[in-house]
Design a protein around this nucleic acid. Structure first.
Lengths: 119, 119
DNA sequence: CCTACAGATCAACGTCTGTTGAAATGTAGA
DNA sequence: TCTACATTTCAACAGACGTTGATCTGTAGG
């Protein structure tokens, strides 16, 4: 991930409705959520959400697939992980005091126990 | 860190000059950088950078101190780490496949070897 | 005290972003 | 094929954001 892409991702996450949408999709897991359900969850009109989802998709944070009449959106875990890694890489430029607490937090969270192979 | 603060931090990082400023300050370490040097590094006029630094400071990502005629800015490591932890916390809502690659990345970076106590 | 320097503040401007409502696209069932 | 449903696209508007230039505050040195 280059700076331009990270910039787009951060800008996307800096918007209330988009951040909520991403969080909802991350929570929903790989099964994802239909656009209509997502609109209701986020609390925004469908056409408006569609605008935001397009931007999130362009930023590589979510992906979409059609299922019958509905369009199912799901979190792009690879893109999200790239963004986190970008942040990690930045904070490691000779100053581990930034990353250390994050590592500690990860150690306390369920993620550390899951044996998941990186994408 | 609540959603509002994370929102402000993400929005701040979603702006080219601000992202560069934060990265430069993180790279510079606790010693920080004078506003003038930072302006030259980022490539933006002093008064304009001042505007951005104020926003970054308000978002809790940087801090400032005066040294003679200069004002020295430095990365607010606690704030940055809070933001990372916020992201980590989000991605752990039952779906470790997001965090796992990030953990792997941390393992490969120098941060894992530094014995730094969390703030 | 006065000058020079380093930043910060302010108002004004152009531009980008998000929202709204209406219309268009694509899909499933009768 | 026709209708209903789910979602997207489009144009237009208000509002927020970033930049610029001038002005103000605070600090060091003569």
């Amino acid at each position: 991930m280059d700076e331009r892409q990270a910039l787009a991702a951060f800008a996307a996450l800096g918007q209330e409705h988009r951040l909520r949408a991403v969080r909802a999709l991350v929570t929903a897991g790989p099964d994802g959520l239909a656009a209509g359900v997502l609109a209701e969850t986020v609390g925004v009109a469908g056409n408006n959400l569609s605008f935001h989802l397009k931007e999130l998709s362009h930023a590589g944070l979510i992906s979409a697939r059609r299922a019958g009449k509905s369009v199912i959106y799901s979190a792009a875990y690879a893109g999200l992980s790239d963004l986190v890694q970008f942040l990690m890489r930045d904070c490691c430029q000779g100053h581990p005091e930034v990353c250390a607490p994050a590592v500690a937090a990860l150690g306390a969270c369920d993620c550390a126990t899951g044996d998941i192979a990186p994408a």
